[in-house]
């Protein structure tokens, strides 16, 4: 067993893995650490035996094992693709000179290098404050939309926050007043971040997530750490509601087009989505990271 191995940390990771899952890279790290520590490996095995017994597959491989290994593989493949892009940029930098390198880095580097998502279900939330745009008007009968809250997950008291800081964790609730089930996308746009900052669906997913109808302020569950992937400055958070799912690729193409107009952060400028036969309701808010909430708009 290596000196860096901590039983307590490993046990916590195992508990988390079996209770609600881990990200790909963390899972692989956990498995590697079990090679070094038979006692932690035993704890893992106990959970695994219980999981199999619960699925009625005592002694045989459960589908959860297959899913777990798959999650580890595709998590690593996605991270690998991002790292390759960073390597290309590093190679280009000395060739193209300082000015060109700065431009390339601004466009490509900050595209979701790591997950900014944290699960809040087991976190002790000591303070939550809504960050809504001022002067925002809504028709309560038929609106769809979302609200943003900052979450204080620390142990040292409640900190009432009146602005969005880079160290904040934010969480969302959505409102979908239509009767039937719908689909939603929620993402952030920033000037120096090439691609959308995906909140829902998560990175690597292909289409919108499903949302239940007739819901007001339904929590979406995850926390988003602004310190990961985000930058200080204006952040436009945009939601797209539809009756059928929208493809991530279509949205990313539209964002690229919108960026070229130079009005990406204008909440009155709708996303130029090129999808036929799908009615999309768009709602966006503009925040300033490390500053105060500025403008809101409903379309």
């Amino acid at each position: 067993m290596s000196l860096s191995h901590s039983h307590r940390r490993t046990e916590k990771q195992i508990r988390r893995l079996f209770a609600r899952g881990l990200e790909g890279r963390s899972m692989v790290r956990l498995w590697k650490s079990l090679h070094e520590c038979p006692s932690c490996a035993k704890i893992y095995e106990r959970y695994s035996v219980l999981e199999s017994a619960l699925a009625g597959r005592g002694g045989t491989v459960s589908h959860f094992s297959v899913e777990r290994a798959g999650q580890a593989i595709f998590g690593q493949l996605n991270e690998g693709a991002q790292q390759r892009r960073v390597r290309v940029i590093k190679w280009l930098a000395p060739v193209a000179g300082a000015v060109a390198a700065t431009l390339v880095l601004l466009l490509l580097l900050p595209a979701h290098p790591a997950s900014h998502r944290v699960d809040l279900s087991e976190v002790r939330i000591t303070g939550m404050q809504q960050l809504a745009a001022r002067g925002e008007s809504r028709k309560s009968a038929s609106y769809v939309g979302f609200r943003v809250f900052t979450v204080n997950t620390g142990d040292d008291g409640i900190g009432e926050k009146s602005r969005l800081d880079i160290g904040d964790t934010i969480t969302f609730t959505y409102t979908y007043a239509k009767k039937e089930k719908g689909y939603m996308m929620l993402f952030g746009l920033q000037e120096n971040v090439a691609k959308p900052l995906w909140y829902y669906p998560d990175y690597g997913k292909k289409r919108s997530i499903s949302v239940a109808g007739d819901r007001v302020d339904e929590p979406l569950g995850d926390g988003i750490r602004l310190a990961v992937n985000h930058q200080e400055g204006p952040l436009r958070i945009l939601s797209l509601f539809s009756k059928t799912p929208i493809q991530v690729n279509d949205v990313e193409r539209a964002v690229l087009e919108l960026r070229q107009t130079g009005q990406m952060l204008d909440v009155n400028k709708p996303l130029p989505l090129k999808i036929s036969n799908i009615e999309v309701t768009e709602y966006s808010l503009l925040f300033n990271i490390n500053g105060t909430t500025s403008v809101g708009a409903t379309k």
Partner: peptide, 18 residues
């Protein structure tokens, strides 16, 4: 014998295969 060993091996093998 252990599930974590197989899970680790499977992810490693598929990473090589992919």
């Amino acid at each position: 014998q252990a599930s974590w060993q197989i899970e680790d091996a499977v992810q490693d093998i598929f990473m090589r295969a992919f």
